[in-house]
Amino acid sequence: MHGLHIRLPKNFVLEERLERYAAAIEPNPYGWRGLWAAACRRSDAAPFREVRLDLGCGRGGFTVEAARREPDVLFIGMDSEPICIAYAAQVGCESGLSNVVFVPGSAMRITEMFAEGELACIYLNFPTPFPRKKDSGKRTVNFERLMDYRHVLAPGGQVRLRTDSQPLFDFALTQLSIAGYEPVWTSRDARADRPDDPTSEYEVKLGGKGARVCAYVATPGEEPRDPHQTAEMSLAAYIPQDLGTYDGYAPHGMEATIQNLRNRAAKTGGDWSSGVTI
């Protein structure tokens, strides 16, 4: 998830927060591979019907709200930032829900944390766009990551992306075809099309600034025999020639990229795309 600046309260001590809300944190998630649905249940309850992963859960608002709506499903919120885990665990503990847990980790090791077919759904809510070509390997929507997701998704399992970044969304659509996924639903105004879906702190904050959410739901189709990257990797390649599209709102994490293109356009008489390598 791309980071909005988190204002820490005075005297915030990360270690103390992690200890205080440890009941909602699994510090060694790799030890539960293949066991999540049964191991996380209450002692007097049946295993969870299915397991879903909120990958890049941020402060946990979406994870907890989704868990509240489906108490027979286990929701796992994962984030690589310890501060996010601390905040998410607090939300989880205060919710009183028994079907939500938070874990430290990243998409790069997802097959080490979950067994074949263990997940029913992977949510990618507002992932970091990493607009520059040299950083593109870090994107959680790349076909390499989608190929990893195939192994941990159950038959008919889904990947669900939400982003305020139109360039990242258009890039992400190219990756679905490379990895052999079939789009079930796409939208360039997801909140209008599905107003009752759970929301996250990011969506609320960015929506207040004018963001429009692009989204897809996709499921793995036939596995490609020899997948390889064919898409343009710089997100600048997916920005419309008319930069006026972004006069009201520039996607979070891409403000500097768009400003650089505006400066290029000013120097070239309006054509910023010639020879762009951002």
Results as ranks from 00 to 15, higher is better:
Ile6Met: 09
Leu8Thr: 05
Asn11Tyr: 04
Leu14Asp: 08
Leu14Thr: 02
Pro27Gly: 00
Pro27His: 10
Asn28His: 15
Cys40Asn: 05
Cys40Arg: 15
Arg42Leu: 11
Ser43Glu: 13
Ala46Cys: 11
Arg49Gln: 13
Arg49Ala: 14
Val51Arg: 15
Leu53Gln: 02
Gly58Thr: 04
Arg59Phe: 08
Arg68Val: 01
Glu70Pro: 13
Asp72Ile: 13
Asp72Met: 08
Asp72Lys: 13
Phe75Glu: 02
Asp79Thr: 03
Ile85Glu: 00
Gly92Asn: 14
Glu94Leu: 15
Val103Lys: 09
Pro104Trp: 02
Pro104Thr: 10
Gly105Lys: 12
Ala107Glu: 10
Met108Trp: 06
Ile110Val: 14
Met113His: 01
Ala115Thr: 02
Ala120His: 11
Tyr123His: 11
Phe126Ala: 00
Pro127Gln: 13
Asp135Glu: 13
His151Ser: 10
His151Pro: 00
Val152Ala: 03
Leu153Tyr: 08
Leu153Lys: 03
Ala154Asn: 05
Val159Leu: 01
Val159Cys: 05
Arg160Tyr: 02
Thr163Glu: 00
Gln166Arg: 13
Pro167Arg: 02
Phe169Leu: 09
Ala172Ile: 00
Leu173His: 12
Gln175Lys: 12
Leu176Glu: 03
Pro183Ile: 10
Arg188Lys: 05
Arg191Cys: 12
Ala192Lys: 05
Ser200Met: 03
Leu206Thr: 05
Gly210Ala: 06
Arg212His: 07
Ala215Thr: 01
Ala218Trp: 09
Arg225Phe: 08
Ser234Trp: 10
Ala237Ser: 11
Ile239Ala: 14
Thr245Leu: 04
Thr245Ser: 00
Ala250Gly: 06
Pro251Gly: 09
Asn260Ser: 15
Asn263Lys: 05
Gly270Asn: 11
Gly275Asp: 03
